[in-house]
Design a protein around this nucleic acid. Structure first.
Lengths: 232, 232
DNA sequence: TAGGATCCACTGGTGGATCCGT
DNA sequence: ACGGATCCACCAGTGGATCCTA
């Protein structure tokens, strides 16, 4: 193994069970993200914050032994667990909604909750808070979450409403205000990428790519009470 | 009658019926507020906008023959009609919520919708839009509004919820976010004036004076459809 | 391009504060 | 003090735009 001023660390093997994954996540609590990053890369360069987008997620994936890469599958394949980092402010509130998956508008007609990738992703989630405070990022207490059946009803209702709207050709009526827990918002590598859907009269409509997101107020509530319903 | 460079106009007698009031309001449509103001006062001085607060309301009251003054009663006594000017932006959207009446927190225990002054005020309202566009204020198309029974249910429910909260001593829980159509917000001549109420444990609580307001989105919807329910 | 996320200009609403006239 | 209203600083959420790695 090559040596550099900062020792690099090999990614661990995939965790064999939930207990092992949990133990690894616990071991990260309180650690500095910048320091972990330096150790992984062997380099010393935090860089401006907007050039760090997405890196935290991949760092934590590696540290926990997720099957890295862009597979259509759970981060921890054998366990069926999806990993999500969650940026929190100093007061413990999520700073952003959580991206779940992209959604091709053309798929709306075929989509149904029971067989959706979204449902599979949300079936079992490991949230790892990234606490932004005093100019530093620290890893927080992890949360394993499985939606209760009452919670899943909310998710499914949102999913049906949103997908239904699009299937009916009301693409332009889809706003981020819709959905109690879920929302559909833009998600694009470049603002000019277009995807397609069919409008009210069956005409082809070109829109920007979108994705499903979990509202920040929902993740906030989940951190405090994993069984929350937030209102009903 | 004295002459001045700008002719002043005598306030008309109170309108005898709704038709007469309606005709007067119609006659103002499209007129410039500044010009009407100059004609009334005989002076030529619009002044900075923040020194004009409240004047529009009184100007229109005079022009329509309202029984001016701070009576606890409808602006048009015989007709039981309340006059409200409504500031609109260039797109026709209300710029502000509409002040309805002040509310002494101490009255909460006694208050009930059926006998409330608020209900009487809202029973029949003449809305006179003041359109703010291109640096000018113009009088818009008037709207006579009587709440439908479905609308009154919404108003009463809001009233009961808000007054109920206060009666229970939850004064500090009253936020402008509560209420579908109505809201309770601060209303004070000076920020330091205090009124009093009783807290959860019966202790005396000192709070700033508040009043009932009608949400801007409600007046907006009413202008487009006087029977709107806005959702249910 | 897909998965991992964060940035940011804008806007609508909140929570008061303020102003006029009687 | 009360009835007539408007002003404004701030904040949360929206609607995209942008960035990284594989």
């Amino acid at each position: 193994m090559s040596r550099s001023p900062l020792v690099t660390v090999d990614p661990p093997a995939p965790p064999r069970d939930l207990a092992e994954l949990s133990a690894r996540a616990q071991a990260l609590v309180g650690r500095s993200v910048d320091e972990l990053e330096r150790r992984r890369s062997g380099r010393d360069a935090p860089g401006p914050s907007r050039e760090r987008k997405g890196k935290v997620g991949q760092l934590v994936e590696q540290l926990l032994g997720a099957s890295a890469g862009s597979r259509p599958e759970p981060d921890f394949v054998g366990l069926g667990i999806e990993l999500k980092t969650l940026p929190l402010d100093a007061a413990g509130r999520p700073k952003e909604s959580t991206f779940l998956c992209s959604f091709s508008l053309g798929d709306a007609e075929r989509a149904d909750w029971a067989s959706s990738g979204l449902r599979r992703k949300l079936a079992h989630v490991l949230f790892v808070p990234i606490v932004h405070a005093a100019g530093e990022r620290t890893i927080g207490e992890p949360l394993f979450w499985r939606p209760s059946s009452a919670q899943e009803q909310i998710l499914r209702a949102d999913f049906d409403d949103l997908v239904g709207l699009i299937a009916l050709g009301q693409v332009e009526a889809v706003t981020a205000r819709l959905g109690r827990w879920l929302q559909i918002r833009p998600k694009a590598a470049h603002g000019r990428v277009r995807t397609h859907a069919f409008g009210l009269d069956g005409e082809l409509i070109s829109t920007i790519p979108r994705g499903f997101y979990l509202r920040a107020r929902v993740t906030h509530a989940l951190l405090r009470d994993p069984h929350t319903l937030l209102d009903g």
